[in-house]
Amino acid sequence: MSNSPNSINAEAPQDSALSTAAITLFGIVGPYSFLVSPVVTGQMAGQLDWSAGTIGLIMGCELAGASLVSFPAMRLLRVLSPRTVALLATVLFILANVASSLVTSVELFLPARIVAGAAGGVLSVVALVSAGRSANPPKAFAYWSGGQTVAAAVGLLYLPDLFVHTGIGGIYGCLAAAAALSLAVIAGFGNGLLQSLSGGGERHNLKAARWVLVAIFGFYVAVGGAWAFVGIPGAELGFTDAGIGILSSLAMTAGILGSVFASHVGGKAHHNRFVIASYLLLVLCLGVIEFVADHMVFAAVIVLLQVLWSFLLPLLLASLADSDDDGNMVILSNMIIGGGAALGPMLAGYTIDFLGGYGAVATEGGIILLLSAAAFARSQALAKGAAIQAPSSSLSHG
Results as ranks from 00 to 15, higher is better:
M1N: 15
S2Y: 14
I8L: 08
A21I: 08
T24S: 04
F26I: 00
F34E: 05
V36F: 01
V36E: 04
P38H: 01
V40G: 00
G42S: 00
M44V: 02
M44A: 02
A45G: 09
L48S: 10
S51F: 06
S51R: 07
A52V: 14
A52Q: 11
I55T: 15
I58G: 05
A64I: 00
A66Y: 00
S67I: 00
A73H: 05
M74F: 10
M74E: 11
L77W: 11
R78M: 11
V79W: 11
L80K: 11
P82Y: 09
A86G: 08
A96H: 03
V98T: 11
V98C: 14
A99H: 10
L102H: 13
T104I: 12
E107K: 13
E107W: 15
L108N: 14
F109H: 13
L110T: 15
P111W: 15
I114G: 12
A116R: 07
G117D: 02
A119M: 04
G121Y: 01
V122I: 09
V125E: 00
A127P: 03
P137E: 02
P138I: 00
K139F: 02
G147I: 01
A151N: 00
A151M: 02
A153Q: 07
A153M: 09
D161G: 05
H165S: 13
A178S: 06
A178D: 02
A179Y: 02
A179F: 02
A180M: 06
S182M: 01
A184P: 05
V185P: 03
G192Q: 15
L193C: 11
Q195A: 15
L197F: 09
G199W: 08
K207R: 15
R210Y: 13
V214G: 10
G218R: 10
V221R: 13
W227R: 15
G231A: 15
E236I: 12
G245I: 09
L247G: 03
L257W: 03
A262Y: 04
A262D: 03
A262T: 03
S263D: 04
H264P: 14
V265D: 03
G267M: 09
R273Q: 14
C285L: 03
V288D: 03
I289T: 06
F291N: 12
F298E: 07
V301A: 07
V301N: 02
V303S: 07
L308E: 04
W309N: 14
L312S: 08
P314Q: 01
A318W: 12
S323I: 04
D325N: 09
D325M: 08
V330D: 06
M335S: 11
G340Y: 12
A342C: 07
A348N: 02
G349M: 04
F354P: 04
L355V: 02
Y358I: 01
Y358C: 05
I368A: 02
L370H: 05
L370S: 05
A375P: 14
A377T: 15
R378K: 15
G385A: 11
A386F: 01
A387V: 03
